[in-house]
Design a protein around this nucleic acid. Structure first.
Lengths: 338, 338
DNA sequence: CTTGATTACGCAATCGTTTGACTGAATTTA
DNA sequence: TAAATTCAGTCAAACGATTGCGTAATCAAG
């Protein structure tokens, strides 16, 4: 096992008896270096399998060619798809990606952010935790001229760059599908009110019903804390109503999975006694026997990719931006039962 | 938006009218610097929110405090669990992780490796592609003194550091469970023979049968190319036998999922007409209605964590190792139907 | 023969931090 | 009192690549 240290410009220069600057310029095919010298340098560089020391360049250019990504969970299918989008775009631009998972813990999010700041990432992509409602730590970053683009789980404020999914399109498709199938009592199992995602779902649910000419019954709206018990309780509430909903729109596929177990335990039949449409379009539906009517796809890969694209724009133009990029990607209902 | 550039030792030195070296040492609480100076430096550093320029340090120390991870897919539940293990261990040691997905493409794997080499990662963790049978690109790395630890999908050779899962324990448990339930015709749907994973499964399947006193019937062994068609064909072959197996051990859960669809289409009943045990223990089983008898857990998180631990050992002792670490983690059968 | 351009390259500074060697002063020891 | 020790800090080099500026050498044109 040879302990070969990578070769440097200095080495090449010494062997060729020219100066380091000549070697550097030769390797960049700078016009002020003669053809003979240039080729000699290139040849020797190849022979010694010279490779630029990125660390030295990072240091000199005060850039790291690295972007930081913070998201709640790496193993969540939604986020791992988003990461793929980010990775691919970054790799195509010779950038590296470092990642941190906040595990939906606000303090952890702050810690990771600190860490990435000291590592001097050139830019950040963030999907915030469920707990995050204070954004001071993010504002700090922009003072150091490190741009941030939020995606999917974005702060509820205007002065940010972000990419998010417009759930309205999916929600409208869902309500349309339900009304076309004759449903008029459409419940909503929402998430905790403190989540932006919940408030948003409530709003578009109301809007969707209005558009479909269905009256809004507050009884038909329940919420869950996203625990297993919370999920089943929420469904239980709806099923205990005098006016039981025949269709239910659910916060996301995970909540729905718990609901489905309960439906089964209660001896009810999916899509007959009660029908569901939810959000996320988890890959696991492909493998399941019992399926909801539909699930709403939020295009995580596309979101990640687009967010990265915006981040690169921001990093290139190091002008302090006053214009905020806010890209909305339309969601789309994916039908599982016709 | 203020374009504040991070403060440096030089700045602090100038303000305090001491030399840069004094500031540096003061911040490290070096004994040769007086208490007064030391505290003054610390205070000013805090005030200016000084942070060491990691790039400069990386450069100087010729380390990047970054490890590279190459694996087939980020979105595969197995690998995202492994990543979590890697991330956690690395973060605890103030290391960063950069990742690349080979997507089971050999050329891509080589390209990513090159990229990580030029980025001068301090070490690498690799789970090889299904195609990789030439390991020259990895050998190159060790010449540059960049240690590599392979995990899960490891090269089939001895001179490597690796962490892998011992499938034997799980296989034996599986066969034991099946024989206890009265099965004596136990089939195997294996993967392509070129995969090490397949050859290994075949070997331990044979060994397991022998241990259980069951005769080995080559008819009962079929293989799939892991495509959907390949998977259903494999099952079809087994079900067409005169001596149909009553239980089948399957290459992995994905293959099993396809088999399950076919079982359903054929009007057979899972765990009655035919029983399955497979490998991977995908999280999605938790949500399914129809389940195999069991699936064999390979502890990806633990594998990732252990591999990283070994990598850190190697990075610390930059002695050229002649001893190869090969850690085997026992697999375990997780029962879904008693 | 002198000026001016052109070619081909070298010098030295720079980025921020660390560290071995060194210095000047105060204090202690023999 | 001279020599030795400790204290508190400074100097300068080093890591590798880049780049503005400088400068010999050659050649052509005026």
């Amino acid at each position: 096992m040879i302990n070969k240290t990578p070769s440097t410009l200095k080495e090449i220069a010494k062997i060729l008896k020219v100066s380091v600057s000549t070697v550097s310029r030769a390797l960049h095919n700078h016009p002020s270096i003669g053809l003979t010298t240039t080729t000699r340098v290139h040849e020797l560089a190849k022979e010694l399998s010279y490779e630029r020391n990125q660390s030295a360049i990072f240091f000199k250019e005060r850039k790291t060619y690295t972007i930081g990504v913070i998201l709640p969970s790496l193993s969540e299918p939604f986020f791992s798809a988003a990461i793929s989008g980010i990775e691919d775009f970054a790799a195509a631009n010779d950038y590296n990606v470092i990642m941190g998972q906040s595990l939906d813990d606000f303090e952890r999010e702050k810690r990771i952010l600190e860490n990435m700041k000291t590592h001097r990432v050139d830019g950040m992509l963030v999907s915030i935790t469920k707990e995050t409602s204070n954004y001071d730590h993010f504002n700090q970053l922009s003072k150091y001229n490190i741009p941030i683009v939020f995606f999917d789980r974005v702060p509820d404020k205007k002065e940010i760059h972000c990419v998010a999914c417009n759930l309205e399109s999916g929600m409208f498709q869902a309500i349309q599908k339900l009304t076309e199938s004759g449903h008029s009592l459409i419940g909503l199992i929402n998430g905790p009110h403190k989540l932006f995602a919940s408030r948003q779902r409530l709003e578009i649910y109301a809007k969707g019903l209005r558009a479909a000419g269905i009256s809004f019954e507050s009884d038909l709206i329940v919420s869950t804390d996203l625990t297993r018990d919370g999920n089943t309780n929420a469904l239980h509430q709806l099923l205990s109503l005098k006016q039981q909903p025949t269709a239910i729109i659910v916060f996301n596929d995970y909540v729905l999975l718990d609901c489905m177990s309960m439906v089964k335990r209660a001896g009810l039949i999916m899509n007959k006694d009660v029908s569901f449409i939810s959000f996320a379009n988890l890959p696991l539906w492909q493998y399941m026997d019992t399926l909801p009517l539909a699930s709403i796809e939020q295009f995580p890969y596309k979101q990640g990719e687009k967010a990265t694209e915006i981040l690169f724009q921001l990093m290139r133009s190091n002008e302090p931006e006053t214009l905020y990029n806010q890209v909305i990607i339309d969601s789309q209902m994916i039908t599982y039962c016709p």
